[in-house]
Write a protein that binds this DNA or RNA. Sequence first.
RNA 1: ACGAUUGUAGCUCAGUGGUUAGAGCGCCUGUCUGUGGCACAGGAGGCCGUGGGUUCAAUUCCCAUCAGUCGUCCCA
Length: 423
Amino acid sequence: MKGPKLETLPLPGMQDLLPADTHAWQFLERAFWDHASLYGYREIRTPILERIEIIDRTSGETSDIVTKEMFDFVDKGERTVVMRPELTAPAMRAVVEYNLCPPSTLLRLAYGGPFFRYGAIQKGRFRQAHQFGIELIGGVGPEADAEVIEFTVRFYEKLGLNNLVVLLNSIGRAECRAKYETVILDHLAPWLKDQETEVQDRARRNPLRILDWKEESIQPLLQTMPPLTDYLEDASKARLDSIRQFLGEVGVAYRLDPSLVRGLDYYTETVFEIQSRHLGAQGSLCGGGRYDNLLAELGGLPTPSVGVGIGIERALIALEAEGFAPLAPRPDVFVISAGKDARDTVRLLTSDLRRAGVRALSDVDGKSLRSQMRQADGSGATFALILGSDELTSGQYQVRALREQETFTVPAGEVVEWISARR
RNA sequence: ACGAUUGUAGCUCAGUGGUUAGAGCGCCUGUCUGUGGCACAGGAGGCCGUGGGUUCAAUUCCCAUCAGUCGUCCCA
C-alpha cells in the first residue's frame, strides 16, 4: 500500500520544533508566565480560528495583513473563517462576549500562542509564528501605557537580552490623525502626481503609512514634512509626556521615533516597538500600543486599553545571537543490566527510581553491557547503575559516577535513596 | 509578489557527461567473556529534490516545477 513518496516537509513558512528546539521554547514560556504573574496578568486562551469579520473590523481593511496576508477559507458551514493573524482582536472579542471588563474596572490579560500570516518568508518571518502578549484593559492613565512598556522591557532584561532599542511614538486620536492625513497628502501631492496609480492608491488608502515608506525619492519630502507631533491634541501630548516621564523614572531607555506607525489600524495614541540590533531587517522583537476604540468596534463598551505582542521566534533568534544555549535536562541515572539475569531487576528498579522522582533511563533491547554504557554516556546521565548476577547475589550494587569516573558500592535497599540524594 | 542563491548519506559538505557516487562527524558491531569517553578495524545508511528535454549515455548540461536560505516590501 505504498503510494508515491509523500512530501514530509512542513508547509511553507511552518516549522517543526524538534526536541533540540523545544527546550529553549519551554524556557521562554516559563519565563513569560512567571513574569506575567508578577504583574498580575492572567491567561486567556481563545480559538485559533475566528470569524473573518472580527479581524476585518479591527485590523483595518486597508492593512497589509487583511488585504493580502490572511489564511482564510470557507468552512463546511459556509462561514468564512480565518486563522487568526494576531491575538489582540480575538482576546478582545472574548472580553466583549463575556463582559470581562465592566465599566470602571481594570482587566489584565495575558496570552501566548500561534498566529498566521500568509506573507513572504525569510529570517525571523514565518507563516505560523508565535507570540506572547498582555493587554491592560480599561486603563485610561498614562501609567497603563508605561506599565505595558516596562513589562516588556523587563521581560527581555530577564532573558538576558541586551542591545535593545525601545521606539516610542504617539499617532494621536482618530480626529487628529484624520487632520494630519490631509496634511500628509497635501505635502506629498506634487510628488504623488508623478507616481504610478498603485502607489497613489496605497497613499490614499492609508496616508499614515507613508511615514514608513522606504523609497529613496520620497525621503527628502518626509524630512521637510511637519511632524505629527505638531498636530497632536493636548491630551495626547500630555499622555506621551507622562509616559516619557514614567519610563525615565524607572530607568527604561527609549527613543522617540516620529515615523513609527503600526501595521494594524486599531491603534490610537501610544505606539511602541522594541528592536534588536541582531536581527537586521526583521529587527522588531515586539510591537504594541494603545487601542481605545477596539472594544467598541467589536460591539462592546468603549474601553481604553493598551497591550503588546511579543514575538517568540524573534526573541529566540536574538537570544541565540547573544550566545544563549539552554541545557537539555539530563538523566540522573542509567540503569544497566550486565547479562540477562538482571533485566527484570533493572526494569523494576528503574520504575522505583522514577516513582521516587529520579530521572532514570534503561535499555529496552537487551543490548550488550558495552552498548548500554555507551547509551548511558551519550545520555549525559550522572550515574550508571550496573546490575549483574554478582550484584543480585551480594545485594551490593555498583554505582558509577560517569563524570568523576568513580565507582561506589551501595546496598541494594539504599540505592534509590542514595542516588536521589546525590543527583 | 519580486530578486539572488542553494537542493548529493542522519548532519556539514566534496565531486564527475561514462562501470560499484565520496569525506568528516554521528550511528551500529567488534578489538575489550562484567564497565563509557580515546584509539584501531569492520558495517549499516543515497531514486544525487521532482518532472521533462538534449545525448549512445545525465547526479553532472538545458527548461520547468517544488522546497530551503537570504534580501526588497511589510511585520512578530
